[in-house]
Design a protein around this nucleic acid. Structure first.
Lengths: 340, 340
DNA sequence: AATTGTAGCGAAATCGATTTAGTGTTCACA
DNA sequence: TGTGAACACTAAATCGATTTCGCTACAATT
């Protein structure tokens, strides 16, 4: 077994001091070219690699960043992680992924374990439970310790830190207008409870668009779905009790499930009923008919968030102002809506 | 800003030695109860947390494991990561996720950076490029350094290490038999090129099932898809040139795309044509009609792999024998196939 | 010949913990 | 009174690197 070699061993073998080895490997001008060559050749031969842990201890930098997300089995989040990973790697950082599973407790534990030296900064998207509780002491704590935090997608105004978000209200507003211009009049909304910030904002955008177009808001057309389990039932109830010519889902699953229901009830899509979802994923792409969606550009969001964090890590001055980046969305027109 | 406090500072404040602080915090019997109480109270007050990096350096253990996967925007892999993360956390480990993006070079770089101290062991699923090249020197290197490696899903016989796999050949065999028993005779196969181990094995299972049932293998019914881009075209070509009553896709995407094509060509599903996919994901679940699939139990696979790695990390004896775990698959009957 | 400069290298401190091997005091017992 | 054990604590080594400061030759300068 070819064990890892340390500077100490190189020093012993070549009969020089450890300091000399260190300087030689770093091409210090203090060291003669002869010695430098000798040391570097030996290091190469024995495949010497500096020990990251020792470096981290000395430099007080780990070159690791943590991402805490509610769950990973979710297309949008995997896109974000891909973006984070790509940008972080490009800038010389590794990514530690932590899952909160939408649990407040796990979010807190994750932050605490990570904060004790393992990483240089946090990327965080709040768990549902944390948003419902509005307890952010763990975020304040790491910020007070001087550890940078960048929040993305599911954020809170109560915390002062860099943020990257989708302009959900505007995206939703635009989408609903799009539906209206394509000829829809009674648009049902499938959304989440209001404590989920994105659900709230998308609902807001929906209402504003209707208002601006002079269409009355009918609360019966707004369905708030808490969990996936109750989705089917609530969708069926909507179809049973209301008449409408379009469904806007705040995520692709809601829209697709509604579309299936319409399908099995014999509605013609998109002529009798149109469908739009949020966050373009494989479901939308391969649904039948394929689903028109709001593209959130998760990859870019991940890249931006990672860049913001690393910028802050590498700028020495303590900038007190916090940035907020808004990622633009776009509408991807497919088969489930009529052309405008 | 409430800075992090170290043992040194506790020692200075309480006018004892660093050793005393360390022992007091660890409830050493060498230290008087008075001192223990005093130190622990002070530590709690100032929210002392041991520095992980220092501990790692001393203990030569990081309590981090790296997962290297080809890509993360993929339901099966996210399930595996969830499983890994759950089990690793349960056992006190953190998970560093690295993406190879199906690239050999990035796989190598990831392993090299991780191997220099950041982690205690590897979990790896090979990139397509690595499988095609059959160059595994980077794996041998970390193994020779004494760092445990567990491979999962996409593995290689050439490397001696613990492995967790799906019994792809058998799963495929069972699935094809299932189709035959449900009344299908001409079963098309949508698969990957043979250098992808899972594609090869699933193809093998398909052929064996046909043989065992006395059905002749028609190579025209076997379509090898290299990239997603060419998927649509190859599926269309299949429908144009061949007649068949079932399609078996080695992943859910292939099956769903084929099903869409059948749909738009007016075939009745499942009566005129049946469909089965591999790896149960959201696509299968929410396809229309919903897709019968082989469930691979990715979460369990992740858990098993993580457990195997950590077991090896925590057993001191150098066991030379390697384990291979096979995860059972099951068939989830939905609307795209006829009942057997 | 004495001083200064410099090239080349090494000793030791440092990062933040643990751990081994002492050190000094008190008390019991012969 | 002296020995030994028990107790409570400290000094120092250690993990693997970097970095500051200092030292020793030897050459150049005055």
């Amino acid at each position: 077994m070819k064990k890892k070699i340390t500077m100490k061993e190189i020093a012993r073998e070549l009969d020089v001091s450890i300091s000399t080895v260190s300087k030689a490997l770093n091409n210090s001008p203090e060291i003669s070219q002869d010695t430098i060559d000798k040391v570097q050749a030996f290091a190469k031969l024995y495949n010497y690699k500096p020990n990251n842990i020792a470096l981290s201890l000395k430099n007080k930098k780990t070159k690791n960043i943590a991402v805490i997300i509610p769950e990973i089995v979710h297309h949008f989040f995997t896109l974000i992680i891909s973006g984070i990973e790509q940008k972080a790697n490009e800038l010389g950082y590794n990514v530690i992924v932590c899952l909160s599973n939408e649990s407040f407790a796990k979010e807190v534990i994750n932050m605490e374990t990570m904060a004790s030296g393992s990483i240089d900064g946090f990327l965080l998207s709040l768990s549902k439970e944390t948003m419902a509780k509005k307890d952010f002491h763990h975020l304040r704590e790491v910020i007070n310790q001087g550890m940078p935090l960048v929040m993305f997608d599911r954020v809170s105004d109560e915390i002062y830190c860099d943020k990257v978000i989708i302009d959900d209200a505007r995206a939703s507003y635009n989408t609903v207008k799009h539906l209206i211009y394509s000829g829809c009049q009674r648009i049902a909304l499938l959304t989440t409870p209001d404590y989920v910030s994105v659900g709230k904002l998308r609902t807001l955008g929906y209402k504003n668009a209707l208002k601006d177009e002079g269409i009355e808001i009918d609360e019966n057309l707004i369905v708030r779905v808490e969990t996936v389990e109750e989705l089917d039932a609530k969708v069926k109830a909507l179809f049973d009790s209301q008449k409408f010519d379009a469904v806007f889902g705040v995520n692709e699953l809601y829209a697709v499930v509604a579309m299936r229901e319409a399908h099995s009830r014999g509605f013609l899509i998109p002529h009798e009923m149109s469908f739009v979802g949020f966050s373009d994923g494989i479901l939308s792409k391969y649904a039948y008919p394929s689903l028109t969606t709001v593209v959130q550009h998760g990859f870019e969001m991940g890249q931006k968030a990672a860049k913001m964090l690393i910028d802050r890590l590498e700028s020495d001055q303590n900038d007190d102002s916090y940035k907020m980046e808004v990622i633009k969305t776009s509408i991807l027109q497919r088969e489930s809506t009529k052309p405008v």
